[in-house]
Each structure stands twice: as C-alpha cells, then as structure tokens.
Design a protein around this nucleic acid. Sequence first.
DNA 1: GTAACTGCAAAATATTTGCATCCTT
DNA 2: AAGGATGCAAATATTTTGCAGTTAC
Lengths: 139, 139
Amino acid sequence: MNQTLDILKRSGLSVTEGRREILNLFIQSEGALAHADIESNTKISFDRVTVYRTLQTFVENGIIHQIPTTDNTILYALCKDKCGSGHHHDEHVHFICNDCEKTICLDDVIVPSVKFPEGFHPLQSAMVVKGICSDCIKN
Amino acid sequence: MNQTLDILKRSGLSVTEGRREILNLFIQSEGALAHADIESNTKISFDRVTVYRTLQTFVENGIIHQIPTTDNTILYALCKDKCGSGHHHDEHVHFICNDCEKTICLDDVIVPSVKFPEGFHPLQSAMVVKGICSDCIKN
DNA sequence: GTAACTGCAAAATATTTGCATCCTT
DNA sequence: AAGGATGCAAATATTTTGCAGTTAC
C-alpha cells in the first residue's frame, strides 16, 4: 500500500489532497523542511493557512516532529515509527550543514544521556549540531 | 568595576543606557530571555527596534548566545567567559521547564560528544532538554 | 448526512529598513 | 567633530482566527 496513505490512515486522519502532497514532500525529502520550503515546493498551491494547520496536525499525530533552530523558524522532519500520537521520541541528533544549509536527521545517532543536577527531571531532549555534512565535505 | 560596564567596554561597544539596561537584565536573570521578556521587563521603554539591534550586537560580540527552541522564538542567555567575538562555545545543556517555563543554562552539564557517521564534521553543538526543573519538582 | 478540512479575508504579531536626530567617545 | 546608536515611520513578513463553502467517509 502507498506509504503516504498508510501513514495518514494509521493516524486516523482523513486523506485529502493537501495532506498527501505535504506528506509526500517529507517522504521524498532527505532533510528537514521549514514552512517556507513547503509552500514553495508543492505543485498545487495551498493556502498558507492550510500549510500551518497541516503541519500542526502532523505534529500532533506523531507524523512529523519539530527541530529547534536559532532563527525564528521551526524545522519539521518525518518521525520514525516509534513516534506515537502526542508522544515524540526523537532522541536522535539533527545536523545542520553550514555549507548547503540542509538539516539532516541522523537517525542512528542517539542523543546521549547526560547527568543532571539534583532535582532536574528531564523528559525530552533534542540535540542540534552544526558543521559540514558528508556531501559538502567532498568539495 | 561594574560588571556591566566591564563587559561592554571589553567588547569595544559604546556604553549606552539601552545596552546597560538590557545587559543588566541578563546578568540579574537566572535563565534565558526571549525578546518579549526584554521588552516587558525593562523599566525604560525602548523602541522594539532597539531591542532587536541590541540583541544582535550582543550576539555578534559574544556577550550572549542564542538557544534554539521549537516555538518560533529565540531565547538568549549570557555567555560565559570563554565566548569570544564571533565564536561561541556554549556547549552546555539548556533546560526548559515545562512547568515554570523558565530556561536554565546548566553550565556544568557539558554536551557530550557523540560519534558521527563518516564524513560529518561537527563544529558546534547545542542540546536542549525539556522537563521539570529543581524548583518546580518541589511542588 | 455529518464531521472534518480548506480557502478567503482580516486581524494580530513579529521583523526589517531607511532616515533624521541624538549621544558617546 | 565623527561615528555610532536610537527612535520613528513604514514596509515586510509571519502567524492566528472566524466563518462559509467544500470534501472525505
């Protein structure tokens, strides 16, 4: 079965053209996407608002997750299977290339656990690393 | 000598009322501040634009650093001594409390180094952890 | 048929830029 | 005095909300 459909159905979301298109974009894309990328890369032109709402729905349903950035934008990337509705377990490292500016989910690099001071109870961690990615290092 | 003045002078910045006030806010505050916090917590009312420009100047001069978030804002926090102009070395963990919503720099918790796949060259890392802070856990 | 999704309009919010004026050194 | 910093105005950009019309199931 079509992967896109599969994901939407599994989350109990109704299948609409917009959701299919946006979800496809994530599946095809290697890296993470910002709101703006989505607006400019979809063939059909959606209303800005639809993109906002779709992203929000996807996040709430554990289909995509947010990646923190330091530039007033949010990046989104596909979740792996273990993400369920409401609960995100994206404890992998995100790599932002200073050169090509892509953000790549290093799914195999798990965020190491660290020791917190007395009284701090961590629930969720995110790690973002900047540097040069494996594609750009060749040039 | 006054710490605020000291920091500004060391960076070669001219000492103005706005910069003193904003820098003071950072020094007094335990956690990280968002643009909005600054606007609402300064006695003198600055122009929004001045706040933007001041924050930018401080970041460029290694006085404060940005903390990535997933909510379309940027948090700022004072740098420690080792940050120099242009180069930030804030490899410590940032803790965001889900309860009081404060962001705390855990200066003593260093971001652990992780092993990257072949070809990835990390230059800078940031780690943001959400959970319950030591103050809120008591309640 | 009903509930959910979308588009449009508009409001609210956030950020950037240019320029004249004022302040720091 | 000169260069830099600020305030104001205005242009841009971003995000949110309400509502009416449309679509998926």
